[in-house]
Amino acid sequence: MKVALFVPCYVDQFYPQVAVASLQLLAKLGVRADFPKQQTCCGQPMANSGCEQEARPVYRHFVETFADYDYVVGPAGSCVYHVRQHFDVIDQTPAVRHVRTATVELFDFITQVLGVTELPGAFPHKVGLHLSCHGQRGLHQANASEMTPVRDGQLRRLLAGLEGLELTELDRNDECCGFGGTFCVSEAGISARMGQDRVADHVRHGTRVLTGGDMSCLMHLEGIVRRQKLPVRVLHAAEIFNGALA
Protein backbone atom coordinates (compact mmCIF):
# COMPACT_ATOMS: atom_id res chain seq x y z
CA MET A 1 0.00 0.00 0.00
CA LYS A 2 1.51 3.30 -1.15
CA VAL A 3 0.49 6.12 1.11
CA ALA A 4 1.23 9.81 0.79
CA LEU A 5 0.92 12.38 3.52
CA PHE A 6 -0.94 15.47 2.37
CA VAL A 7 0.08 18.40 4.52
CA PRO A 8 -2.14 21.47 4.07
CA CYS A 9 -0.16 24.62 3.40
CA TYR A 10 -0.93 26.30 6.74
CA VAL A 11 0.00 23.15 8.66
CA ASP A 12 3.32 23.00 6.82
CA GLN A 13 4.05 26.62 7.69
CA PHE A 14 2.58 27.09 11.16
CA TYR A 15 1.95 23.67 12.67
CA PRO A 16 4.73 21.37 11.44
CA GLN A 17 4.38 19.37 14.68
CA VAL A 18 0.94 18.23 13.51
CA ALA A 19 2.36 16.82 10.29
CA VAL A 20 5.22 15.20 12.20
CA ALA A 21 2.75 13.64 14.64
CA SER A 22 0.62 12.36 11.76
CA LEU A 23 3.64 10.82 10.07
CA GLN A 24 4.83 9.21 13.31
CA LEU A 25 1.38 7.99 14.29
CA LEU A 26 0.97 6.32 10.92
CA ALA A 27 4.43 4.77 11.29
CA LYS A 28 3.47 3.35 14.68
CA LEU A 29 0.46 1.79 13.01
CA GLY A 30 2.74 0.20 10.44
CA VAL A 31 2.23 2.63 7.57
CA ARG A 32 5.18 4.41 6.07
CA ALA A 33 3.84 7.53 4.41
CA ASP A 34 5.77 9.55 1.83
CA PHE A 35 5.73 13.29 1.69
CA PRO A 36 5.77 14.22 -2.02
CA LYS A 37 7.46 17.54 -1.74
CA GLN A 38 6.02 19.11 -4.87
CA GLN A 39 2.64 19.29 -3.08
CA THR A 40 1.24 22.74 -2.45
CA CYS A 41 -2.42 23.22 -1.56
CA CYS A 42 -5.89 21.87 -2.29
CA GLY A 43 -7.11 25.17 -3.72
CA GLN A 44 -9.87 25.72 -1.19
CA PRO A 45 -8.94 29.31 -0.26
CA MET A 46 -9.42 30.31 -3.86
CA ALA A 47 -12.59 28.35 -4.50
CA ASN A 48 -14.29 29.53 -1.33
CA SER A 49 -13.60 33.08 -2.44
CA GLY A 50 -15.47 32.39 -5.64
CA CYS A 51 -12.34 31.83 -7.71
CA GLU A 52 -12.86 28.21 -8.65
CA GLN A 53 -11.72 29.06 -12.19
CA GLU A 54 -8.36 30.20 -10.85
CA ALA A 55 -8.12 27.10 -8.68
CA ARG A 56 -8.26 24.62 -11.56
CA PRO A 57 -4.50 24.54 -12.24
CA VAL A 58 -3.98 23.97 -8.52
CA TYR A 59 -6.42 21.03 -8.59
CA ARG A 60 -4.59 19.51 -11.55
CA HIS A 61 -1.28 19.94 -9.80
CA PHE A 62 -2.69 18.21 -6.73
CA VAL A 63 -3.83 15.28 -8.84
CA GLU A 64 -0.47 14.98 -10.63
CA THR A 65 1.32 15.03 -7.29
CA PHE A 66 -0.70 12.24 -5.75
CA ALA A 67 -1.94 10.17 -8.70
CA ASP A 68 0.49 7.30 -8.04
CA TYR A 69 -0.55 6.71 -4.45
CA ASP A 70 -3.14 4.28 -3.18
CA TYR A 71 -4.09 6.69 -0.41
CA VAL A 72 -3.54 10.36 0.22
CA VAL A 73 -3.89 10.98 3.94
CA GLY A 74 -4.38 14.45 5.40
CA PRO A 75 -4.80 15.65 9.00
CA ALA A 76 -7.48 18.17 7.93
CA GLY A 77 -11.08 17.26 7.21
CA SER A 78 -11.83 20.46 5.41
CA CYS A 79 -9.08 20.14 2.79
CA VAL A 80 -9.89 16.46 2.26
CA TYR A 81 -13.55 17.31 1.82
CA HIS A 82 -12.62 19.95 -0.72
CA VAL A 83 -10.65 17.49 -2.82
CA ARG A 84 -13.36 14.86 -2.69
CA GLN A 85 -16.28 17.21 -3.19
CA HIS A 86 -15.13 20.11 -5.32
CA PHE A 87 -12.58 18.64 -7.71
CA ASP A 88 -15.63 17.90 -9.86
CA VAL A 89 -15.02 21.00 -11.98
CA ILE A 90 -11.95 19.64 -13.79
CA ASP A 91 -11.95 16.91 -16.42
CA GLN A 92 -12.81 13.67 -14.66
CA THR A 93 -9.86 11.64 -15.95
CA PRO A 94 -9.17 8.30 -14.28
CA ALA A 95 -6.40 9.99 -12.29
CA VAL A 96 -8.73 12.71 -11.02
CA ARG A 97 -11.38 10.21 -10.08
CA HIS A 98 -8.80 8.07 -8.32
CA VAL A 99 -7.30 10.93 -6.33
CA ARG A 100 -10.73 12.18 -5.29
CA THR A 101 -11.65 8.87 -3.71
CA ALA A 102 -8.13 8.05 -2.49
CA THR A 103 -7.83 11.27 -0.50
CA VAL A 104 -8.94 10.53 3.05
CA GLU A 105 -8.84 12.27 6.39
CA LEU A 106 -6.30 10.87 8.87
CA PHE A 107 -8.81 9.35 11.28
CA ASP A 108 -10.98 8.00 8.48
CA PHE A 109 -7.84 6.30 7.22
CA ILE A 110 -6.99 4.88 10.61
CA THR A 111 -10.46 3.63 11.47
CA GLN A 112 -11.85 2.69 8.09
CA VAL A 113 -8.90 1.77 5.90
CA LEU A 114 -6.66 0.31 8.58
CA GLY A 115 -9.63 -0.90 10.60
CA VAL A 116 -8.06 0.35 13.82
CA THR A 117 -10.89 1.46 16.07
CA GLU A 118 -8.99 1.67 19.33
CA LEU A 119 -5.70 3.35 20.04
CA PRO A 120 -3.90 2.43 23.23
CA GLY A 121 -2.32 4.89 25.62
CA ALA A 122 -3.13 7.29 28.37
CA PHE A 123 -4.00 10.98 28.36
CA PRO A 124 -5.28 11.93 31.79
CA HIS A 125 -6.80 15.29 30.97
CA LYS A 126 -10.15 16.94 30.53
CA VAL A 127 -10.42 17.12 26.75
CA GLY A 128 -12.86 19.11 24.66
CA LEU A 129 -13.44 17.86 21.14
CA HIS A 130 -14.12 20.41 18.45
CA LEU A 131 -15.95 18.89 15.52
CA SER A 132 -15.02 20.40 12.18
CA CYS A 133 -18.15 21.04 10.13
CA HIS A 134 -16.61 19.70 6.96
CA GLY A 135 -15.48 16.57 8.78
CA GLN A 136 -18.80 16.09 10.52
CA ARG A 137 -21.42 17.12 7.99
CA GLY A 138 -19.24 16.84 4.89
CA LEU A 139 -17.34 13.61 5.52
CA HIS A 140 -19.93 12.18 7.93
CA GLN A 141 -17.34 11.51 10.61
CA ALA A 142 -19.70 12.28 13.46
CA ASN A 143 -23.42 12.39 14.21
CA ALA A 144 -25.04 15.77 13.73
CA SER A 145 -27.36 17.38 16.27
CA GLU A 146 -29.70 18.34 13.43
CA MET A 147 -30.50 14.63 13.07
CA THR A 148 -30.05 12.91 16.41
CA PRO A 149 -29.45 13.63 20.09
CA VAL A 150 -26.82 10.88 20.20
CA ARG A 151 -23.34 12.37 20.31
CA ASP A 152 -21.16 9.89 18.54
CA GLY A 153 -18.29 9.79 16.10
CA GLN A 154 -15.03 8.03 15.45
CA LEU A 155 -12.75 10.64 16.97
CA ARG A 156 -14.94 10.87 20.05
CA ARG A 157 -14.71 7.10 20.45
CA LEU A 158 -10.96 7.01 19.91
CA LEU A 159 -10.43 9.76 22.48
CA ALA A 160 -12.81 8.17 24.98
CA GLY A 161 -10.73 5.00 24.68
CA LEU A 162 -7.60 6.69 26.03
CA GLU A 163 -6.89 5.92 29.64
CA GLY A 164 -7.73 8.74 32.05
CA LEU A 165 -9.17 10.99 29.39
CA GLU A 166 -12.38 12.77 30.30
CA LEU A 167 -14.43 14.31 27.51
CA THR A 168 -16.09 17.67 27.96
CA GLU A 169 -19.85 17.72 27.41
CA LEU A 170 -20.62 20.97 25.66
CA ASP A 171 -23.87 22.92 25.56
CA ARG A 172 -23.61 23.00 21.79
CA ASN A 173 -21.87 19.90 20.57
CA ASP A 174 -21.44 20.85 16.96
CA GLU A 175 -21.71 24.57 16.50
CA CYS A 176 -19.33 25.98 13.89
CA CYS A 177 -16.23 27.74 15.25
CA GLY A 178 -16.44 30.53 12.71
CA PHE A 179 -13.13 30.02 10.92
CA GLY A 180 -14.57 29.45 7.46
CA GLY A 181 -11.37 30.09 5.46
CA THR A 182 -11.40 33.59 4.01
CA PHE A 183 -14.58 34.18 6.05
CA CYS A 184 -12.33 34.72 9.06
CA VAL A 185 -11.15 38.00 7.57
CA SER A 186 -13.98 39.03 5.25
CA GLU A 187 -16.45 38.65 8.14
CA ALA A 188 -13.88 39.16 10.89
CA GLY A 189 -16.35 40.42 13.50
CA ILE A 190 -18.79 37.53 13.23
CA SER A 191 -15.95 35.04 12.89
CA ALA A 192 -14.32 36.27 16.07
CA ARG A 193 -17.60 36.28 17.97
CA MET A 194 -18.34 32.71 16.89
CA GLY A 195 -14.90 31.60 17.99
CA GLN A 196 -15.24 33.36 21.34
CA ASP A 197 -18.59 31.69 21.97
CA ARG A 198 -17.16 28.29 21.06
CA VAL A 199 -14.20 28.72 23.37
CA ALA A 200 -16.50 29.96 26.16
CA ASP A 201 -18.59 26.78 25.91
CA HIS A 202 -15.40 24.75 26.43
CA VAL A 203 -14.14 26.87 29.29
CA ARG A 204 -17.56 26.75 31.00
CA HIS A 205 -17.43 22.97 31.01
CA GLY A 206 -13.86 22.59 32.08
CA THR A 207 -11.92 21.83 28.91
CA ARG A 208 -8.18 21.94 29.57
CA VAL A 209 -7.06 20.49 26.27
CA LEU A 210 -8.96 21.51 23.16
CA THR A 211 -8.56 19.14 20.26
CA GLY A 212 -10.01 18.12 16.92
CA GLY A 213 -9.19 16.64 13.58
CA ASP A 214 -8.96 19.85 11.64
CA MET A 215 -6.11 22.22 12.30
CA SER A 216 -7.77 25.16 10.54
CA CYS A 217 -10.57 25.39 13.13
CA LEU A 218 -7.99 24.87 15.84
CA MET A 219 -5.73 27.64 14.50
CA HIS A 220 -8.63 30.06 14.82
CA LEU A 221 -9.64 28.83 18.28
CA GLU A 222 -6.05 28.85 19.47
CA GLY A 223 -5.75 32.46 18.37
CA ILE A 224 -8.68 33.29 20.66
CA VAL A 225 -7.42 31.17 23.55
CA ARG A 226 -4.04 32.91 23.41
CA ARG A 227 -5.52 36.38 23.07
CA GLN A 228 -7.67 35.76 26.15
CA LYS A 229 -4.74 34.05 27.92
CA LEU A 230 -6.91 31.09 28.87
CA PRO A 231 -5.50 28.00 30.61
CA VAL A 232 -6.37 25.78 27.64
CA ARG A 233 -3.92 23.90 25.46
CA VAL A 234 -4.82 23.41 21.83
CA LEU A 235 -3.57 20.19 20.24
CA HIS A 236 -4.45 18.36 17.05
CA ALA A 237 -5.77 14.89 17.87
CA ALA A 238 -2.81 13.36 16.01
CA GLU A 239 -0.50 14.95 18.57
CA ILE A 240 -2.50 13.43 21.44
CA PHE A 241 -2.55 9.92 19.98
CA ASN A 242 1.04 10.04 18.83
CA GLY A 243 2.13 11.15 22.27
CA ALA A 244 0.00 8.56 24.03
CA LEU A 245 1.11 5.68 21.85
CA ALA A 246 4.50 4.37 22.87
Binding site: C133, A144, F179
Partner: peptide
Protein backbone atom coordinates in the same frame (compact mmCIF):
# COMPACT_ATOMS: atom_id res chain seq x y z
CA UNK B 1 -20.03 35.13 1.51
CA UNK B 2 -21.79 35.63 4.85
CA UNK B 3 -21.37 31.96 5.69
CA UNK B 4 -18.70 29.57 6.87
CA UNK B 5 -20.35 26.88 4.70
CA UNK B 6 -20.81 24.82 7.86
CA UNK B 7 -23.82 23.10 6.29
CA UNK B 8 -26.15 23.23 9.26
Amino acid sequence: FASTLCGS
